[in-house]
């Protein structure tokens, strides 16, 4: 049941055809795990908090550095040296005090990933390295949790939605290939676009509206301002989802 305040706060989105109070109630009940409070996690979390997701869990083990501030818009000058998860939660709670937001300052590992995502309904992949992305993808598939992938490089970004057992996963897409982690170039507007696409997919999934980015890799090339789609099939031999 939505309160009078919630009906007023979310009035404009409740007005959307097919959304209604029912859609808003679904958002209110949802628990979203956002892995990474950086360039992608910031816009994704901001728009999910503004939309009224009932519980958001922000996971990041890093501390805020000056070089983060060109893109990680949840962190400001005054937060340098603070834990990113805590810094993010403080801003999000100010944005929307009616929702529950939790900070998780732990490093995601094989040992704790399953427990950390625990009772979350959805996982947003806003990480900055492939090994943790694969780990989250595998965990999401094992637990049957929808997984919303996004990644950026320079002026280019990608997004894909994974429904375990139904659509291709991150491991199907990249064949488990590992590339060494190096410092990557990026300008803030790129993760802003991709993080918002991830948040859009989350909202669509929860409310049951529209067509998800499943089995499709969306590539965004900001310099030529082109969106291109690539078909991604499930790999029957995939080590993560081939057995489903």
């Amino acid at each position: 049941m939505l309160t009078e305040k919630e009906l007023q706060r979310y009035d404009r989105q409740i007005m959307i055809y097919g959304f209604g109070e029912e859609g808003q109630e679904k958002l209110k009940k949802a628990r979203v795990f956002i892995a990474g409070a950086g360039g992608l996690g910031s816009p994704a979390a901001i728009y999910l908090a503004a939309a009224g997701i009932g519980t958001i869990r922000m996971a990041d083990h890093d501390t805020v550095e000056l070089s983060n501030l060109n893109r990680q818009v949840l962190h400001w000058d005054e937060n340098i040296g603070e834990e990113k998860a805590e810094s993010a939660v403080a801003k999000l709670q100010k944005l929307n005090s009616d929702i529950r937001i939790e900070a998780i300052g732990e490093t995601l590992t094989e040992a704790n990933a399953s427990q950390l995502v625990a009772d979350s309904d959805l996982i947003v992949d806003a990480m900055d390295n492939l090994p943790t992305r694969y780990l989250l993808n595998k965990t999401a598939i094992e637990k049957g949790i929808p997984f919303f992938h996004g990644a950026v490089y320079g002026f280019e970004g990608r997004a894909m939605t994974v429904i375990p057992g139904k659509s291709a996963c991150l491991n199907c897409l990249y064949h488990g290939i590992a590339v060494p982690k190096v410092k990557f170039p990026v300008i803030g507007v790129t993760p802003a676009v991709i993080g918002c696409i991830q948040a859009t997919e989350v909202i669509k999934y929860i409310t049951g509206l529209g067509e998800l980015l499943t089995g499709r890799l969306l590539n965004y090339d900001a310099l030529s301002m082109k969106f291109t789609e690539f078909k991604v099939n499930r790999d029957p031999n995939c080590e993560h989802c081939g057995n489903l």
Partner: peptide, 29 residues
């Protein structure tokens, strides 16, 4: 034409008018 050529990409046939894309793995966040 929007479909992955993996695996054995190099030997995959190409027809007249086909469009090929080269996509590199990105992981930044």
């Amino acid at each position: 034409n929007g479909e992955s050529a993996y695996p054995e990409e190099m030997t995959k046939p190409v027809k007249d008018g086909d469009k090929l894309n080269i996509v590199f793995i990105i992981y930044g966040g």
